[in-house]
Write a protein that binds this DNA or RNA. Sequence first.
DNA 1: AGAGTAGCTGGCCGGTCGGTCAGAACATCG
DNA 2: CGATGTTCTGACCGACCGGCCAGCTACTCT
Lengths: 209, 209
Amino acid sequence: MVIEPEPEQRTFTEIARRQQIVGAAIDTIAEVGYAQASLARIAERIGISKGVISYHFTGKDDLIKQVVVDVVEAGRNYILPRVSAEITGPSTLRAYIVSNLAFMRDHRNYMVAVVEILRSGAFKTDGGRRLDGREVDVATRLLQEQLARFQAGGEFRDDFDPSALAVAIRAAIDVVPHRLVLDPDFDIDRYAGEIANVFDRATRREDTP
Amino acid sequence: MVIEPEPEQRTFTEIARRQQIVGAAIDTIAEVGYAQASLARIAERIGISKGVISYHFTGKDDLIKQVVVDVVEAGRNYILPRVSAEITGPSTLRAYIVSNLAFMRDHRNYMVAVVEILRSGAFKTDGGRRLDGREVDVATRLLQEQLARFQAGGEFRDDFDPSALAVAIRAAIDVVPHRLVLDPDFDIDRYAGEIANVFDRATRREDTP
DNA sequence: AGAGTAGCTGGCCGGTCGGTCAGAACATCG
DNA sequence: CGATGTTCTGACCGACCGGCCAGCTACTCT
């Protein structure tokens, strides 16, 4: 386990540059896809030499990891309080779906970039091995556990499989960046409402209409 | 529009070679991902020089197109009769979901490869331009039309958006190849049943339990 | 002024890619 | 045995990749 350098050791300039580069990486990946997002292209976008990226990051892996970390943190900061504010199972589930998609609506490039990265299999751990299995899919696992908890508490019907439902809900959410690429006029808010209804009907007990 | 050469002009050897190469491409893409599936690697799998691929196909684009065409045709041949055999809206929807996933279960590499290709944006038309918009998503559009038809016919509830539901259903289906990569023990049949229930509950009229 | 440091440039390296090509290998027929 | 057409090999090409580094610039400190 390598210890990260103290944040205090980072120059003001360096912090700004790193953020600028991460932003350029996000926009470039979102625009041309991960496969075509070379260091040269990312550097070109902000008018710097690609050597600068090597100077501020240990390599492309390091840059990509920072992109994912930044986006995931921003997403969690947005979604978590909105979900936690709800109390009942159905309202929590709806808040989860709606806030996930609202974040995507307001940060399209963020999500497109991260989805591009994750599906390209380019995201690696510190050790260099590729993330796989349950590691990548923390979001699906957490959702599954939440569903199971509410189900055990009697707030949801008891004849669905939380695992399968979690996969389907995440799939319905994660497909949106791709859908945005296919159809720039895709109405996220409308979709969010419809999907929330779908999974609400699928989980709601018959005696709680 | 370029006319394909007559099939009769293809040697017996050539037909066999082309199929062998397409098969090797499918397995290679499914195994190492599209980005790492170079012509050299595909050729190596069947112990030939990569020049052979250039000899039988005009280029990598041509080979990839053939892969997609072959798999889509196989999938349609499997799914279409099973869906057409059903009569009511709910049973048709269930047959659609179950047969889609059954085909994936029996042809994992086929589906993994095609999903890899489509999401990598490498699939091109004859004209060379990338497929986008509604072109790629024929499957989603057809499903949407089918849903709308049954909805108009009163077999489904009338307060859901066929467009949004079609996107969600296709997402729940198309995520499976990726899920298989994450978890080799993923139970497709169980998932198929659960998802069919989810979307059945989301579309079924209250007065038809 | 001189020394030191952070930040950056631009060219170079080894490697992989898709694609090309001269010619070998092979089967078939006169 | 040639002659001919098909199939294949292996070397090679130019392009692009991530990474590397000598050296330039600009700023700070003594």
